[in-house]
Design a protein around this nucleic acid. Structure first.
Length: 733
DNA sequence: TTGTGGTGT
């Protein structure tokens, strides 16, 4: 790895990128500062308790801080993918710590990854490279899978796990160095972690200086793709920036000539693939980037149907495709055959396909966006960013020099945004706002790298207020209600956590957690033709709708003793079911733990339909997600004013009628309606055909064609709505 | 009458 350094003062200068072999020393020089190798602290034992005490004392007496000066303790490490930084930097840091603190019982490095698979494979690879014979020195932690020990020195974990650890211990006393990998991906978790670390580095180092204990320092390494450094650098004032040389091969870029451009990028892409297939050597495999399943299947069909089919091996690749079919893309095709992988952005970051020499880039991506005017997440086809185009092109140069064919002219590329919008700007932030008070704990402040969109924040707070999880009149740091505090640690959406709480009070925790864990799975059903699907579904189908159908499927899976054979026969994903079982156990365990100090009254349900009770728990919690059918058979939202028990502010902002303004496709909340936009029950729902007159839904999405679809639907008529329970509500103190 | 990609002590 090769590094060059730059400080705040010479930002304008183009950084020098040095060859690989000099990397280690320059990194260590920056990492250890001047006193590297001269400091030899002797720590008899690891002493986090002392550190915690001093940190608390410091925070009690410290003045508000304008700028969290990193004082050289944060390093921003920029380098292309494939430069080896994810495996090398943790080892370099590990050896540095060992040398610097030779008598310390234990030092530990955390490395966060956005994806489970990366955390698992990197830990395995580093373990192999270091030839470590003691189990657990290098460990991984992802949900449901950890091999972390007290003796662990290098800990690869997902961002989600580190967030949970921050909420449990904001000072991260178990770590001496935190490395944030793939920071450029800017997931919501990345943004929270970076926002926390910039404060923590400041305070940990202040205490370390006061106590003259090097060991109490926290150092942070932010590893990111090459690109704009100034945003990160000003967010971490006093940080060092280093550049690492890449290990990828050159990729020749071919743009579409302006004369051949067309609105129909699909036909253009398919035609280009066929043309290139006829021109290029057959052992140069293709990777085609499109936006979604439907497009991909269409193009795949087209490519397979041509008379070239003897020489092409066409593989679709998208997340919903069963694992078995996905594996085709990773195989070596028959001799004399060209492999053509047609993929979504799953192949952009998550999966690396061997043997690719040519990339065909449509220039489009299907991405989530948040429509704050009506609190909906929408999926829309958009232009990619320049950095995504580079990322896609890079896929052609993993093993040898390659080329990319961009289905857009250079002039279009020049108009692309530099980077994609970070997830925090295009998502519902309800769950984030429930976690946020934990991040104010250190010194009562928190600032994101880029401010949250205020409309999105208002939406999130209103929903949390409606759920009684926050008190909006309080400061952010003290905003959570007692219930909110408890539910903030559940790994599910706040509204689902609240459903779980009500379900517990009514003695149907087990059933509600089954249903919720089923909703957490993706791609539950294996592909099958429509006729067999409806036959199979009959076995589980519940007249009440999707929620009880999920419960039936779960119950029968458990009855089958979690059998894969049963799953295959029922055209249900075994992977999804196994996942649901684990999520369910986690939810029940968490709920039991949080209710330990609370009296729960589990009265048996008598003379009452248990399914109605379960549905009532959902409907009562999310009463603003009720919808009713109009005479034309389409759905719109209803509001039941009597049931709105929270503040007037919410009533004003959330008159949940499905109306639309001039703008087609918008589900207006409060503006005078000009035109009513109707929602449809999503075809995957068991109620899509029956279409009962009154329903609740757990999710609404807007697709590319402006169809507003309701998901996870259940019948919810007046009988259920007015259900009275003899059970006591849980009171939480 | 249909689903970009991730993630959670």
């Amino acid at each position: 790895m090769a590094l060059a350094s730059s400080s705040r003062d010479d930002k304008a200068e183009k950084p020098e990128i040095l060859p690989m072999c000099l990397a280690k020393n320059s990194f260590l020089k920056e990492f250890g500062g001047k006193d590297y190798a001269t400091v030899n602290m002797t720590e008899k034992r690891y002493a986090p308790i002392v550190l915690k005490k001093r940190l608390k004392k410091l925070l009690k007496t410290s003045e508000p801080v304008e700028e969290y000066d990193q004082d050289g303790n944060t390093i921003i490490l920029m380098g292309e993918t494939g430069c080896g930084k994810s495996t090398q930097v943790p080892q370099i840091v590990h050896r540095y710590l060992k040398k610097k603190f030779p008598n310390t019982k234990r030092t530990c490095i955390a490395i966060t990854e956005p994806r489970r698979l990366a955390a698992l494979t990197l830990a395995a690879r580093v373990n192999e490279e270091m030839k470590s014979t003691i189990e657990g020195i290098i460990a991984h932690s992802v949900r449901f899978d950890t091999n972390f020990f007290d003796r662990t020195r290098i800990h690869f974990l997902t961002e989600g796990i580190l967030l949970q650890q921050i909420m449990a211990d904001p000072f991260l006393l178990g770590y001496h160095v935190v490395i944030v990998d793939e920071a450029h991906e800017r997931s919501i978790a990345t943004d929270l972690i970076l926002g926390h670390l910039r404060k923590l580095v400041y305070y940990r180092n202040k205490v370390a200086k006061m106590m003259e204990r090097e060991l109490f320092k926290l150092k942070v390494v932010i590893m990111t793709a090459t690109g704009e450094a100034s945003t990160l650098q000003s967010y971490f004032p006093g940080s060092k920036v280093l550049f690492i040389e890449g290990r990828t091969h050159p990729v020749k870029i071919n743009y579409l000539s302006p004369s051949s451009q067309s609105d129909d990028y699909l036909s253009l892409t398919a035609a280009t693939v066929m043309k290139l297939h006829n021109e290029l050597p057959v052992d140069e495999h293709f990777l085609v980037f499109l936006t979604g399943q439907e497009e991909i299947e269409g193009v795949v069909k087209q490519l397979r149907a041509t008379n070239h089919h003897f020489h092409v091996f066409v593989c679709p690749l998208y997340a919903a495709l069963p694992k078995k079919a996905q594996e085709n893309a990773f195989t070596i095709p028959p001799y004399g055959t060209r492999k053509i992988v047609v993929a979504t952005n799953i192949a952009e970051t998550s999966l690396t396909i061997p043997g690719i020499k040519v990339v065909i880039d449509s220039g489009f991506i299907k991405a989530k966006s948040y429509l704050s005017s009506h609190g909906l997440e929408a999926y829309q086809v958009q232009h990619i960013s320049k950095s995504q185009a580079a990322q896609r092109a890079g896929r052609a140069g993993r093993e040898c020099p390659g080329q990319v064919y961009r289905m857009y002219p250079k002039q279009h590329f020049d108009n692309f945004a530099d980077f994609e919008e970070p997830e925090i700007k295009r998502s519902n932030l309800t769950q984030l706002h429930l976690m946020l008070p934990h991040f104010y704990k250190i010194d009562g402040s928190f600032k994101f790298m880029e401010d949250i969109n205020p409309e999105i924040a208002v939406d999130a707070k209103l929903e949390l207020e409606a759920l009684d999880l926050i008190n909006p009149l309080q400061d952010t740091k003290a905003m959570l209600t007692e219930l909110g505090k408890r539910l903030s640690k559940f790994p599910i959406e706040p509204k689902l956590a609240t459903v779980l709480y009500y379900a517990t009070a009514r003695g149907v925790l087990e059933q509600a957690s089954s249903i919720i864990s089923m909703m957490e799975t993706e791609n539950l059903f294996l592909p099958s033709n429509e006729d067999t699907r409806s036959l199979e579904l009959q076995k589980f189908w519940a007249p009440e709708g999707d929620l009880i159908t999920y419960l039936n499927i779960f119950t029968q899976f458990v009855k089958s003793k979690n059998s894969k054979v049963w799953c295959d026969k029922s055209r249900i994903s075994f992977r999804a079911m196994t996942y649901a079982v684990r999520v369910r156990k986690q939810l029940i365990d968490l709920m039991k733990r949080f209710l330990e100090e609370v009296e729960v009254d589990y009265k048996p349900l008598h003379n009452q339909n248990i399914n109605m009770t379960i549905i009532h728990c959902f409907g009562k919690t999310i009463h603003w997600q009720r919808a009713t059918m109009d005479p034309t058979g389409k759905y719109y939202r209803i509001e039941n004013v009597q049931k709105v028990k929270h503040s007037d502010r919410i009533k004003k902002n959330r008159i949940w009628e499905a109306r639309v303004r001039e703008n087609p496709g918008l589900w207006s909340l409060d503006a005078p309606p000009k035109k009513i936009l109707h929602a449809k029950i999503h075809p995957s729902s068991t109620l899509a055909v029956a279409r009962p007159s009154e329903i609740i839904f757990l999710k609404a999405t807007l697709n590319e064609k402006n169809d507003l679809f309701l998901h996870h639907c259940s019948v919810y008529d007046e009988t259920i709505a007015n259900l009275r329970h003899s059970h006591n509500e849980i009171t939480i103190f």
